[in-house]
Nucleic acid binder design. Structure first.
Length: 551
RNA sequence: GGUGGGUUCGUAUAACGGUUAGUACUCAAGAUUUUCAUUCUUGCAAUAGGGGUUCGAUUCCCCUACCCACUACCA
């Protein structure tokens, strides 16, 4: 029987989701959508000790920002669903709310002989391990040792049965078979075999908090939620034999999901997997969203750093997967089309912050001027610039706009003016926040002049010529007359160049002088671009400003 | 230590067992431009090492090295 594809992302709310986790969620999502299936989110909060408040909300918000929207597990309001409904027949999706289910299955396993009760305390086991270690051996709780430990296999029932009532810290352990080769298939890694003698009797259920461990909860929930493929991190590969055996013990092998183990994301330099510290150390975010911990410590996120979610997702998708050709730019829908587990790379990928920036730059260029204007306006406002929708609105705001839509004195600009600036500078930026650094002088007159540039270009033989060019610009009306609209870049460019060339003036020196006066630096936008934006009046004002400042 | 996984330019990756080992990022140089940036062109740079199998190995097998994960009443 062909089953509907159902995959899940099952994070543990022990902190913010790091980008490796986002990638795992993404691959699950892509796989589900490609197969017309469901993407389910399930919260694996079976470790009451490590629960972190806010982590669950963070995870869902992060996925939402990325456009990874669950079909099941989370409602439209972004809350994990707690009670079954038509759309969520498998609820609750938080494992801490499924206690009763797990206990039943744990007991079933004991009754069928696949598991047993163990009464050893954590302290006793720690002592055993320490003892073994001192003899340079490793203690394994399995068929070689379980006979000499305290459990329902080594003790008579009359002795252990009462302990179930009197003790509160017993566990249910899986009875790992002796000398059996478990043969497994992984969608990414192929065939893998492991001998059960190297495995131990894993704890499946804990009486102390009446909660299962990951292994039991995972298998039971994947079965109950009718999961068809389990796509998860490589750290789970070593426990895959246990999971196979668990499906077998429950008699669920015919509907056992297929498994795919993803490689880990590694540090950009050196060795080891990517960690929070690497981000701090190397200066790039390791988390999708900003995270503030209980001590008020802030960890930066891609969103707050100015990355577009599309760029972030695209970058992440390409880390460990490729479409088989040279394409690098994909929308989320494009990824859904192109994705395949067969082309997921087996080896770990070192994270490359430079490439992340490159992606953002590409996406920034693809955005419309209007969309970027919307994003730029808050940045402008944070620098005290006011943006108005139209010239009329400016009037009511008390501004005196020039023909180009600018009031430099009061710091008021029309939206058209801003979008004109955006069009001019978007190719030069990686982030929207860069816009201000690139083009602040299109909103405020330079408050100072770059000393190095001034020393290099601000010489009398240059600036006397520059002043004449400025006079030419201020007198240029593009054929519209002095009271007409401002000239465009195209209109001023050639006449201005012709003006300089015909006099055989040194183009570079004159222009740099002019740029110093207009922008406060000798590097930046073209003079024609600048003057056509800020307009004649502002050009004149800035020339007189630099005259009084530098002479 | 044991078990499992992995190894192509600095990074991400491509290459039915047959290619001058390709592409992108980074970096460098050149061209264009009034500067900077963009753009374009070019360049630097890799099959971990050793054995096999084969006419032929980046590709298949073995060994070694290195890296990673797991080895909890964490996930």
């Amino acid at each position: 029987m062909e089953r509907k594809t159902r995959v899940r992302f099952a994070p543990s709310p022990t902190g913010p989701l790091h980008i490796g986790g986002v990638r795992t969620a993404l691959y699950n999502y892509l796989y589900a959508k490609q197969h017309g299936g469901d993407f389910i989110i399930r919260i694996e909060d079976t470790d009451s000790q490590r629960f972190v408040p806010g982590a669950e909300e963070y995870i869902i918000e992060a996925l939402n920002w990325c456009g990874i929207i669950p079909d099941e597990g989370v409602d439209a309001d972004g809350k994990v669903v707690e009670t079954p409904s038509e759309r969520h027949p498998h609820a609750p999706y938080r494992q801490s709310q499924r206690r009763d289910i797990y206990r039943k299955y744990a007991e079933q396993l004991v009754e069928s002989g696949y598991a047993y009760y163990a009464f050893d305390t954590p302290e006793e086991l720690a002592a055993k391990r320490a003892e073994a270690e001192s003899c340079k051996e490793t203690f394994i709780y399995n068929h070689t040792t379980r006979g000499s430990l305290r459990n329902s296999l080594s003790m008579p029932e009359s002795e252990w049965r009462p302990l179930l009532e009197t003790h509160t810290d017993w566990t249910v352990r899986f009875r790992m078979p002796e000398d059996r080769v478990v043969k497994m298939d992984d969608l990414i890694r192929g065939h893998v075999e492991v001998n059960t003698d190297t495995l131990d009797d894993k704890v499946l259920w804990k009486r102390a908090d009446e909660l299962p461990t990951y292994h039991l909860a995972n298998i039971v929930d994947d079965h109950l939620m009718e999961i068809t493929e389990v796509i998860r991190g490589e750290e789970w590969l070593p426990s895959l034999p246990l999971h196979y055996l668990l499906y077998e013990a429950f008699g669920w092998t015919d509907t056992m999901p297929r498994f795919a183990h993803l490689s880990l994301l590694l540090k950009p330099d050196g060795k080891g997997k990517l960690s929070k510290r690497d981000g701090d150390r190397l200066g790039f975010p390791v988390f999708p969203l900003q995270w503030v911990n209980s001590e008020g410590e802030i960890t930066r996120g891609y969103r707050e750093d100015g990355y577009f979610p599309e760029a972030f997702v695209n970058m992440l998708a390409m880390l460990g997967w490729n479409p088989g050709d040279d394409r690098e730019l994909f929308t989320l829908d494009g990824l859904v089309q192109a994705f395949s587990l067969e082309r997921v790379i087996k080896s770990g990928a070192k994270f490359n912050p430079d490439k992340a920036k490159w992606y953002n730059k590409e996406y920034l260029r693809m955005k419309s001027d209007e969309e970027l204007t919307d994003l730029f306006i808050p940045v402008l406002e944070s620098h005290g610039i006011k943006v108005v929708e139209c010239p009329k609105c400016a009037l009511t705001a008390g501004a005196e706009l020039t023909a180009c839509g600018a009031d430099f004195k009061n710091g008021i600009f029309t939206r058209d003016y801003v979008s004109g600036v955006v069009a001019l500078i978007k190719e030069r930026a990686t982030f929207v926040a860069d816009f201000w650094d690139i083009a602040s002088y299109l909103f405020v007159a330079p408050a100072s002049y770059n000393e190095k540039d001034a020393a290099k270009f601000w010489k009398e033989e240059n600036y006397t010529l520059a002043f004449q060019v400025a006079d030419f610009i201020c007198g240029f009306d593009g054929g519209y007359g002095p009271a007409g609209p401002e000239f465009t870049k195209e209109e001023i460019e050639s006449p201005m160049e012709e003006f300089i060339r015909s006099r055989e003036w040194p183009m570079g020196k004159v222009m740099n002088c002019l740029r110093l006066a207009l922008a406060g630096t000798s590097s930046g936008l073209g003079i024609a671009d600048i003057v056509s934006r800020i307009g004649r009046k502002e050009v004149a004002s800035r020339i007189s400003a630099i005259r009084s400042a530098l002479g």
